[in-house]
Design a binder for these strands. Structure first.
Lengths: 337, 337
DNA sequence: AGAGACGATGTGACCGTGCACATACAAGGA
DNA sequence: TCCTTGTATGTGCACGGTCACATCGTCTCT
């Protein structure tokens, strides 16, 4: 009876070496594609590997090389649709390149919390970090921490010197606003995201740019918190003032809440007021009225982030991507004046 | 000039020992809360740790203990709201217990893909796996693979013998259906999820149970794919037959699409037809009409999964949770007949 | 008082890799 | 022919922890 003794130890590089009749170092060379290996020898080793069902021990490798082949994701998003979609792209791209991914969700964005999160990821010896912390504050903390580790932020802060990338939020917001202007609206309100979110600022800037260029009046933006609930309250508040005919909302959730608020207040969309959102979440095409919005490719954003990060890690030329295009999806909620 | 020499090596356990004037083993004992350490000695060591800003090397620890303090998440969800929310709960709970989390997204659910994903996680030496692979098929593959690793599935398959848990989908679906019955509806249609999804089956069963119990006719369920787009098509199709007055939809996305389809077909909700969804996604409260649905606490589900998994890993008594309660949220889309 | 038990600490080996260096042999140039 | 150069492989150690065992002193029981 060949009962496995206690805890069958996994085969190691030396077991493979013994079976193949070579030294453990030769096995290591085969595993790492070292050039100076005779094809014949290589075949013997690969055979032995197959026979033993050998798998390299990543912990041991990480110990000796100080590289873990693992990327960290630092996420400070409350479960927004966009960032979540990007994470999928990040993971896929990372796995493709042979990296695994360790995700860390930030509950608070205090400098302390960010610091401890970064330390945690450092302890795990991740080789690089993708930051999905859209708050301006987070960004500053990161820069100030003198992280000794390559990292990429999915958001571009104005005047940032680190390597970052993002869909062109400003252009997207500008397109959306220009769309409303093109429909004949001249009094356009903006419901923005929280003050310290980078995207919120970018989208607001796009809105302001478009209005300024068209010589139209701007309104002080209303600061929201991304949630549909806030959009609803905003809709009820806005119903009191009727000095506008269109609203550009910084994300779809708030826009959908806004539609609800308007509906309850007796304001018809798009007859009385046109509404345009941002993100193109899956239900945007199905709410009533269907929501005009700005589409962006979140997973692709994540994939690009990984490519940039890996180039940084490997010391290769960092690829320069053009800004990721956003697309306006025109639907029922925006109509000519 | 105190330029860092080449690559400043991180302080190791022996550096700490030297500074504290003890042996490296004593430091190790302090780190692992060994009982036999004099408070005085412990203080010295902790001081040295603080001075050197020492952090244990997780790879080294993993190498010698064959434990990584890392959990794996095997996700086979296309980005559904529910599973994604659960992942957040999983990560939080895991971090709290000192475990990090490595997520792996499955693109396909073929046995080969699942197998290679499991091997990948095994290579990373995760101590246990949380499976979010709601497809029945995945579940069978997992059982058949004789995984030598603790794992928990977030979904309960009928007659499963592994450790699993889940919100009580059947009860939730039953409550939703009973709600419609209570409103006076007797012809209630069900739009289900894909055939091999565990949740889809559970929700359908709850629907069937409620109808059978009330001695009402059942209809062959319509098989959807969870997407809002499908819901829209279903709405247009259903508009042709008018042999029903209520629809219970297996998730909110499809329900919202259905509302859209009905709207386009001239069917009024809830005047002509009542609709109830499932999941209570954030916009459900704001679409037109606002959507009655079944709320469930996804993050809590993830947290429970982690507790069960850790108990399994540590060889402790596995906690028995009662089924997670679901709550019916009654809104505009369901009304008396 | 002597022996055993226990508490507090130290010593050395080992986990599975990769790296630096050594070695052996073949090929090529002076 | 001898030395240099390059290719293919082997040897020993280091990485940073934990584990098993040894050691030493103190306390307690007979």
């Amino acid at each position: 009876m060949s009962t496995a003794s206690e805890r069958a130890r996994m085969p190691s590089i030396r077991d493979v070496a013994r079976l193949a009749g070579v030294s453990h170092q030769t096995v290591s060379r085969v595993l790492n594609d070292h050039p100076s290996i005779r094809p014949e020898t290589k075949a013997k080793v690969l055979d032995a590997i197959a026979v033993l069902d050998y798998r390299p021990n990543l912990a041991a490798r990480a110990l000796v090389t100080s590289k873990s082949n693992m990327l960290g994701i630092l996420a400070a998003t409350v479960g927004e649709f966009g960032p979540t979609s990007s994470i999928v792209g990040i993971e896929d791209a990372a796995r493709e390149e042979g990296y695994s991914v360790s995700t860390l969700n930030l509950s608070a964005t205090t400098p302390e919390a960010i610091g401890s999160a970064l330390r945690q990821l450092a302890r795990e010896q991740v080789d690089g970090i993708v930051v999905l912390a859209p708050q301006v504050r987070t960004f500053h903390v990161l820069k100030g921490m003198a992280v000794e580790m390559p990292f990429v932020s999915l958001q571009t802060a104005s005047g940032s010197d680190g390597v970052t990338l993002s869909a062109d939020q400003v252009a997207g917001a500008r397109t959306a606003t220009e769309h409303l202007i093109g429909l004949g609206h001249s009094d356009i309100i903006h419901i923005a995201g929280p003050q310290d979110w980078i995207e919120a600022e970018s989208r607001m800037r796009g809105y302001l740019d478009a209005l300024r260029e068209a010589d139209l009046p701007t309104f002080p933006p209303i600061r929201g918190d991304w949630t549909a609930d806030f959009g609803y309250f905003a809709g009820q508040e806005l119903a009191r003032r009727r000095d506008f005919t269109a609203v550009f909302v910084a994300n779809d959730q708030m826009a959908i809440g806004l539609l609800h608020g308007f509906r309850d207040a007796g304001i018809r969309v798009p007859e009385d007021v046109s509404v345009v959102g941002f993100d193109d979440i899956p239900v945007a095409a199905h709410v009533a009225p269907t929501l005009s919005t700005v589409h962006q490719d979140f997973p692709e954003l994540g994939r690009r982030a990984v490519r940039i990060l890996l180039a940084q890690i490997r010391g290769e030329q960092v690829p320069q991507f053009g800004p990721l295009q956003t697309t306006l999806r025109t639907r029922e909620s925006s109509a000519p004046r």
